[in-house]
Amino acid sequence: MAVPSRLAPLLDQFDFTRRRLADRLTGPKMDSGDGEYVEVPAITDEEYLWEPVAGCWSIRPRAAGPGPGATLLAGTGPWGRDGGRPHPWPPPFTTIAWRLAHLSEMLALRAEYTTGGHALTEDDVVHHGDAAGGLAAFEAAATAWRDALVTVGDAALDDIGRCRYPYGSDPEDAFVDVVWWVNQELLHHGAEIAMLRDLYRYLR
């Protein structure tokens, strides 16, 4: 199926942003933004879980229980993501591990509620306490979301509730607006992760 003209720039933006974030985390080089490639070290497990301030939310061993201000560890398996509803205000500062897990969870579940079985929840998501596992989960989730996008024809972009992701306004939104929203989530959390990498280099 040909990519609809309205979707093409959003898909290109998603592809570029996804690759830029992955390269920023794995190295060995990344595009600096002006076409020049600069060396980037791969993220370590220590950096992935680094808590730069007190009270961070992160990915934690389930046996340790939730972190400060969290009421649960979301997901399944030996590691969980600090969470709880209603979310505290002001929102807690989050680690690279938490932010990457948030992106992976959002992408995987939105794919599930667009072209999948519409059954998985945040309780079914497996979180990872190591950088390699977190990166692999991100790549799998990003691929699933992209695969869902390329099945959509032009008319479907206007469908209300084509994605029925239960943790946002998706059931009330046109699908093209959901695609836009996912891109801005990837852009802004990707920028936050990049800033945390800079801070880690200077403060550790």
Score class of each variant (00 low, 15 high):
A2T: 14
P4D: 07
P4Q: 08
S5R: 13
L7H: 11
D12E: 15
D12K: 13
Q13P: 00
F14K: 07
F16H: 09
F16L: 10
T17Q: 13
R18F: 02
R19K: 15
R20Y: 07
D23P: 03
R24H: 09
L25Y: 00
T26D: 10
G27R: 02
P28K: 07
K29I: 05
D31T: 07
S32N: 13
G33W: 11
D34Q: 03
D34R: 07
D34N: 11
E36R: 15
P41D: 10
P41G: 05
A42V: 00
A42F: 00
A42P: 00
E46M: 03
W50G: 10
E51R: 13
P52S: 04
A54E: 15
G55R: 04
C56L: 08
I59R: 08
R60L: 01
R60K: 00
R62C: 02
R62W: 04
A63D: 09
A64W: 00
G67T: 05
P68Q: 14
A70M: 04
T71I: 03
T71A: 07
A74R: 04
G75M: 02
T76Q: 13
T76F: 01
W79H: 12
R81I: 05
G84F: 11
G84D: 11
P88Q: 11
P90Q: 08
T94C: 15
T95K: 11
T95G: 12
T95A: 09
I96M: 08
I96C: 08
W98N: 11
A101K: 06
H102G: 12
L103A: 08
E105Q: 13
E105G: 03
M106W: 04
L109C: 01
L109W: 01
R110Y: 03
A111C: 06
A111I: 06
E112T: 04
G117Q: 14
G117L: 12
H118C: 04
A119R: 13
A119E: 10
T121E: 07
E122I: 05
D124H: 13
D124W: 05
V125Q: 10
H127C: 01
H127Y: 15
H128F: 15
H128L: 08
A131T: 02
A131K: 02
A132S: 11
A132V: 08
A132Q: 11
A137H: 01
E139W: 02
E139M: 01
A140L: 06
A141E: 03
W145S: 02
L149P: 09
L149Q: 06
V150M: 07
A155H: 10
L157T: 06
L157G: 07
L157I: 05
D158L: 11
D158A: 14
D158F: 07
D159M: 00
D159I: 00
G161M: 05
R162Y: 10
C163M: 05
R164C: 07
Y165W: 06
Y165N: 04
P166K: 07
G168V: 03
S169Y: 04
E172D: 14
D173F: 01
F175E: 10
F175Q: 12
W180T: 12
W180V: 08
V182Q: 06
V182M: 06
N183T: 11
N183D: 14
N183F: 09
N183S: 09
Q184C: 11
E185K: 14
E185L: 13
L186K: 02
H188Y: 14
H189Q: 09
H189L: 09
H189V: 05
A191N: 12
A194R: 03
M195K: 06
R201A: 15
R201S: 12
R201E: 12
R201C: 04
Y202S: 13
R204F: 00
R204L: 08
